[in-house]
Design a binder for these strands. Structure first.
Lengths: 124, 124
DNA sequence: ATGAACCTTCAACCATGGTTTAAGGTCAAG
DNA sequence: CTTGACCTTAAACCATGGTTGAAGGTTCAT
């Protein structure tokens, strides 16, 4: 698969994919005789994973250590500990999100009780 | 309260607090006769809220629209809708986190089944 | 064999979220 | 009346995560 196809399948820009390779988030792609990058189908999944993790606030540096070993499939005894650390991070993230949710919910309730704007009243 | 005290109470740097004021995340502080900023106690809470939201991936721009109206306590009929939008955002965020959690969990299980490194075996 | 649509590299540019530095004013203690 | 800890602004600097542009090579259809 060439970089343009990969970009279409993942919704990422080609520049972003090249950028990720440069940063070590993707293993250097195989090259055809023409110098074009040639990707295996699995890379779609890798990129999707990267996007998800990133959306949750993991830095590229953090993501790199995990994904490289995954995609590579190499020996790399460090995989499981790395993933488990990430798992804890995600759990902490979720806990924090729930706290914020509670806070927001309370704030909204407070606002509605204290000083309901005419709009809100009309809303029902 | 002066900016240094506020910094100590929140764990933020003074430069960061001034930066937030410049960006409109904090209402411009009252000034003493000497020109020093003078903060009400409530600002500690505002800053804590900002940090939390930020840790969850909200941009300063996003946070601004919410916090300014909160701290100000002004009429601002737009408060509740804004908060409710944030609430949806947080919920989406949590859902995404849970998906990633599941994925990580599966990945770890897979790794442990497929190719347990000696360390992991010795671990039990 | 020419144009469109790909691909390559490399360097410059951009926004975000700050920190650092320079040059100076304020204030309390000794 | 000076020393040290605080405060002020403004501008420069930094890392992160990309995008954009220039200059050029490839592939394919017409």
């Amino acid at each position: 698969m060439r970089i343009g196809d990969l970009a279409r399948k993942t919704g990422l820009s080609t520049s972003r994919i090249r950028f990720y390779e440069g940063r070590g988030l993707l293993p250097p792609a195989e090259r055809g005789g023409n110098g074009y990058r040639d990707y295996p189908d699995a890379t779609v999944g890798t990129l999707t994973f990267i996007e998800q993790a990133q959306a949750l606030g993991f830095s590229l540096r953090e993501i790199q250590s995990a994904t490289f070993s995954i995609e590579g499939g190499v020996a790399s005894e460090s995989i499981v500990p790395t993933l488990e650390r990430k798992l804890r991070d995600v759990e902490a993230h979720i806990a924090a999100s729930l706290r914020l949710w509670t806070q927001l919910k309370a704030l909204i309730a407070e606002q509605k009780l204290c000083c309901p704007p005419e709009d809100a009243v009309a809303d029902r």
